[in-house]
Design a binder for these strands. Sequence first.
DNA 1: TAGATTGTTAATCGATTAACAATC
DNA 2: TAGATTGTTAATCGATTAACAATC
Lengths: 222, 222
Amino acid sequence: MGKDISKAVIKRLPRYYRYLGVLEEAGVERISSGELSRQMQVTASQIRQDLNNFGGFGQQGYGYNVHHLRQEIAMILGLDHTNNMIVVGAGHLGQALANYANFERNSFHVIGIFDVNPDIIGRKVRGVEIMSVDELPDFLHHHDVEIAALTLPKENAREMAEVLVKNGIHAIWNFAHTDLNLIVPDDVAVQNVHLSESLMRLSYSLKSRQEKYGGAVQDKEA
Amino acid sequence: MGKDISKAVIKRLPRYYRYLGVLEEAGVERISSGELSRQMQVTASQIRQDLNNFGGFGQQGYGYNVHHLRQEIAMILGLDHTNNMIVVGAGHLGQALANYANFERNSFHVIGIFDVNPDIIGRKVRGVEIMSVDELPDFLHHHDVEIAALTLPKENAREMAEVLVKNGIHAIWNFAHTDLNLIVPDDVAVQNVHLSESLMRLSYSLKSRQEKYGGAVQDKEA
DNA sequence: TAGATTGTTAATCGATTAACAATC
DNA sequence: TAGATTGTTAATCGATTAACAATC
């Protein structure tokens, strides 16, 4: 309900959440936008603007209560309850994600892992058995699954996305090297993690830094 | 050299590269910004603006040559030569990345994997033996390594980043849940892949879609 | 109260889109 | 040549930063 929040703001919220977690663990009770700004290397203006999209979480003359602000952000992001997940594709990446299970203190919980390869079906990852994708529709109808992580080769990813959507999945965490936007309807959320694109940006960044700072690569021969 | 290219433009280049690859594989020889715009769901203006940061790759009345444009982008991103990589942290995610090895047709090549855990040192991943991090400095001095992927728990990541930088690494692909920007000097490129942040954005996105489209989650009980 | 710091409006900056003359 | 489509300038839009009155 209400005004749409800009994507740029949403992108920053998890980082605020992380920094507030560090502060809370360190026993810090309150923080001003100025101090947080210094630590996070963003402007205090931006912090205040961002937070005020959701309400006045701070107090003039005091700042923000670390614990309270963190809880508010958790609520905004949907981390205040457990989101059940499945992982489709039990390759190395899929297993890596499954092993993340229960990270962020129970906000996310992997309750099923699926693959096409009969050789690994039946094996367990963190106590969860790898099932055949054939069992996927049935599984989805009998469990409350919010999120599906998709770690299949791009050849199978699109087809599987359709199966997931058809069986009630409304959020896809897509690791396949393909865009699903044209496949899934508007009411299904997709987050792409294109690792190869990230690596290419790093490669570009490395290259432009070398041009800027000179051939600093050589100095490791010393 | 010359004018700085905006981050927003760089972020889009790998996606152009991917789409051009698909077109090339499909045997498409030329493409107009208009047609590419339709396929990629971005404006034709943006495509032309983006590409013209680097030079006039197109031809009036014709469009762009798919193969040539793709090669130009490869050059810009530094994919026209092999970038040697190491993976530090041979956990599930590290092994997943190592298995990516040689993806993007030899642009990236994993030549070393390192871990602290003695139990897995000596094991092989895709023909590359897992070595002890103690051997890391020596390895870096004897090999030409451009990029280090960092897949350690955040407790060790910062310390290891310092070791990498001290031994000549100029590009870090950071998967640890911590920011390295304050640790590494300006001439070291860092790309963060904070998977948990991506998952949180998905969770937000799911939540706001449910609010917008109504409680569509229930309909999978049908 | 005085000092600190927010919430919020206004100003600036940058990125995207539109338009069209140049040109293949 | 005429038609198509780029390269590029100008207009618009959105996001960030600055400023300050409100207020704890």
